[in-house]
């Protein structure tokens, strides 16, 4: 799959779980689309709503937040994150952005299959919807 011309996918991967999980996928040499960029974060709770929207404004086609889920080492942060993402969905809706472009999921240090599944799914979404804003034009 040539992902060269597709909008980039940003993956926010938690330092404790998902980032090592992505490395585990690498160790297993399982391929996934290369229009991805994984950023290591302590807790995605630090990103305000506008961060996500700005990413889309700049051309990011999709964002996957790979958190630790309930295993989050920062007590309470996951709940805060989940609530915030709900608000981001609202704002995306207002802007005519498809909610499919943003995913909140939990990936553990050895969740190879789940990782691949999430990335492929988002790659399909991005391929289908094109650059952010594409869905507005279509509508």
């Amino acid at each position: 799959m040539s992902s060269r011309d597709l909008p980039p996918i940003l993956i926010l991967a938690t330092e404790a779980c998902a980032y090592p999980g992505a490395n585990s996928v690498g160790q297993a040499h399982l391929g996934y689309p290369d229009n991805t960029c994984i950023m290591r974060v302590p807790s995605p709770a630090m990103f305000p709503e506008r961060f996500y929207l700005e990413c889309f404004d700049r051309g990011v086609g999709g964002i996957i937040i790979m958190s630790c889920g309930v295993e989050c080492p920062y007590e309470g942060a996951y709940e805060v994150l989940a609530k915030r993402i709900d608000r981001v969905y609202q704002l995306m809706k207002q802007r005519g952005l498809s909610a499919d472009r943003l995913r909140l999921t939990a990936i553990c240090t050895v969740c190879n299959r789940a990782f691949i599944k999430e990335v492929n799914q988002m790659a399909r979404v991005v391929a289908e919807l094109g650059p952010p804003g594409g869905e507005r034009a279509a509508a």
Binding site: S2, A22, N23, V25, H29, L30, G31, Y32, D34
Partner: peptide, 15 residues
Amino acid sequence: EQVSWVHHGPGATGK
């Protein structure tokens, strides 16, 4: 782990 082991060709270099 996040490039050369999962991507190949020009895409890998770009990433």
